[in-house]
């Protein structure tokens, strides 16, 4: 079992005492599994990729933890972290202005937006990665998400790389109105181009994934994976209950429910996600895998030539590369 929280100590979730500066006995030494009720020693949970050792419940990971789980250590280079949201509607709700909400969320999460994108490697295979951050306004999709993802896809298309998206979302960002809705169009359009270049898009649906993300690029990927137990749907459960006045089936909108109804390709346990993605990348690589002498390598001449521009080492952040498709 990989223990990525040990290897990537900087992504270890902060315990509450660290956050508050309180040096008393940490409250989160033990974590109660919300599914089976088991008390789990938090370090044991971390060692188990934050999956309950008793019942297999998958705890949520934040985006940085997810990247640490999936990408080879030190391989991820973030792109477009400087793209900042705006408030085109001058949106105001009872809690205040959207602009203020953005500032406080950025402060609280340490992220500029709800999607993190970049280039990484999965078991040595270069791949463009975009991961949703649920802690940032419920991973709602707004203009920054759309722009970051479109740029990432365009670079992948330019450099001949596969794209992996890890998708959680509470839906479109209401505070950006129709700009948010239109990001569905923008991201799907970019993926349409990627597909025409015969480059694959792998979508991993994680808990919870709803609304505009489910109704756009996340469900038209070439391969759709989901984590066990993840809730995935178009409309939220409360809305459906209110509108239909019906009781929802017990496993409604779970990954297992979607698999049963033919909506996703595969449910993959967290511990197997990395290796499954690596295999999938190989199956969609430009050169036939069976012709390669080495089993796990990704150095077939054609592939390297295709990916060269984007497959630099982790430290490769040359501006030419980063900007070459930005408009």
């Amino acid at each position: 079992m990989r223990t990525f929280f040990q290897r990537h100590s900087k992504f270890r979730p902060r315990s509450s005492d660290e956050a508050t500066g309180d040096s008393a006995i940490p409250e989160d030494m033990w974590v109660k599994c919300p599914k089976c009720g088991e008390l789990i020693y938090s370090k044991e949970l971390d060692h188990n990729d934050r999956v309950c050792p008793k019942c297999g419940h998958h705890f949520r990971l934040n985006a940085r933890e997810r990247i640490a789980l999936l990408a080879d250590e030190g391989s991820f280079v973030e792109w477009d972290a400087g793209i900042q949201p705006e408030d085109p509607l001058e949106f105001v709700d009872p809690k205040g202005a959207y602009a203020e909400k953005l500032a406080s969320t950025q402060e609280k999460t340490g992220e500029t937006e709800s999607l993190i994108s970049g280039l990484g490697r999965i078991e040595d295979r270069p791949v463009v990665i975009a991961v949703a951050e649920f802690a940032f306004m419920g991973a709602s999709m707004g203009s920054v998400w759309g722009e970051k993802l479109a740029r990432a896809i365009e670079r992948a298309a330019h450099d001949g790389l596969p794209v992996l998206t890890v998708n959680a979302s509470g839906g479109a960002r209401m505070h950006e109105g129709l700009f948010s809705l239109m990001q569905m169009a923008k991201t799907v359009a970019a993926f349409d181009r990627l597909g025409r270049a015969r480059l694959p898009h792998f979508s991993v649906l994680i808990d919870p994934c709803y609304g505009g993300v489910t109704a756009s690029y996340a469900t038209v990927a070439d391969v759709i994976l989901a984590e066990p137990g993840a809730l995935i749907g178009f409309a939220g459960q409360r809305v459906i209950e209110q509108v239909t006045k019906q009781k929802l089936p017990p496993d409604f909108q779970t990954a297992e429910f979607l698999l049963d109804h033919g909506m996703i390709d595969l449910i993959v346990e967290r511990a197997l996600l990395r290796s499954t993605l690596a295999t999938l990348i190989d199956h969609h690589a430009p050169a036939p895998v069976s012709f390669r002498p080495e089993d796990n390598g990704y150095d077939a001449a054609g592939a390297v030539e295709l990916v060269d521009a984007g497959s630099g080492s982790a430290g490769d952040t040359s501006p030419e590369h980063v900007r070459h498709t930005a408009s």
Binding site: M184, A185, V188, A189, F191, D192, R196, T214, A215, S216, Y217, A218, T219, V220, I232, G233, F234, A235, V239, I240, V243, T244, Q246, L248, P249, F252, Q253, F257, H261, G262, M263
Partner: peptide, 23 residues
Amino acid sequence: PGIGSEERGQGTAIAECLLQMVG
């Protein structure tokens, strides 16, 4: 927003429309 619509992939159905239309 109904149970049957979710069972039959409402999100996927919309997404496929978008993908078809844009190209």
